Simulated scan of single mutants.
Amino acid sequence: MRSVITAAAAAALFVLAGCGSADQAASTTDAPKPGAQAPAGDEVGAAGSACPMPVTFKVAAKWKPQASTSGTKLGGAELLCEIDAKPAGSIGYVRVLLAKGVTDPMAALGAYTAVGKNSGFAYTDVQAGAVAAKEVTYTAKSMDVDLPNQVLAVPVGGNVALVTISSIDADLFKEIQPAFELAKSSLKLTA
């Protein structure tokens, strides 16, 4: 029964990846501080890694990267890699997508976040490693639940790489957010 529930939760999380909200405010006493980074594990993105991509970054310890060969698209961007928090004892994903033929990070973010019932958009200019990037936080509504989401957009070789983070509730989102911050701070271009 647990595997059925876990599979259903994972499927729901995948569908919700492009839907989210920054209006959700959950509080936990153990929530990581904003900008906190997870302990580093392996690097992903280089040729020969679990997910060869146009960007590389450190994956949080115990998280499991898996390349996508399905051609799945979310908000017009192709899913390249999905990094699962389950082996580290949490529920959520860092995903990397590629918006092909799009050179403007804001256009890529706009197309990605246009899918679903999203609100509360907050855009910022950020550094991803040494690369200038755009980031959006927002809230997705799914089944009457507000889910926080965060997406980083990095221009790379005539395309835009999107690095996303999502989970099934606000508390888990906060728990896994340091993995996203680690990816963002260690990001490098490979293309």
Rank of each mutant, 00 (worst) to 15 (best):
V160N: 00
F180W: 15
P87Q: 05
A99P: 11
G92V: 13
A61E: 09
D84L: 11
G157A: 10
A77T: 11
L80W: 04
D169H: 13
L109E: 11
T6W: 11
V115G: 07
S186Q: 02
E135N: 10
L13Y: 06
A114E: 05
V4I: 15
K184T: 03
G129I: 10
K184D: 00
P54I: 02
A7Q: 15
T190S: 11
D30L: 10
A85S: 10
G75E: 13
A140V: 05
V156M: 12
K184G: 03
A38P: 01
A25F: 03
Q177E: 15
N118P: 06
S27L: 14
K184N: 00
L13R: 13
T103L: 05
D23W: 02
V55K: 06
D146Y: 15
V163M: 03
N118K: 07
L74E: 07
V136P: 01
A128P: 00
G75C: 12
A10F: 12
K33T: 13
V102K: 10
R2P: 02
Y112Q: 04
Y138K: 06
A122D: 10
A88K: 09
L187D: 01
Y112P: 00
S186A: 08
V145D: 15
G35M: 10
S70G: 07
N118W: 01
K64C: 00
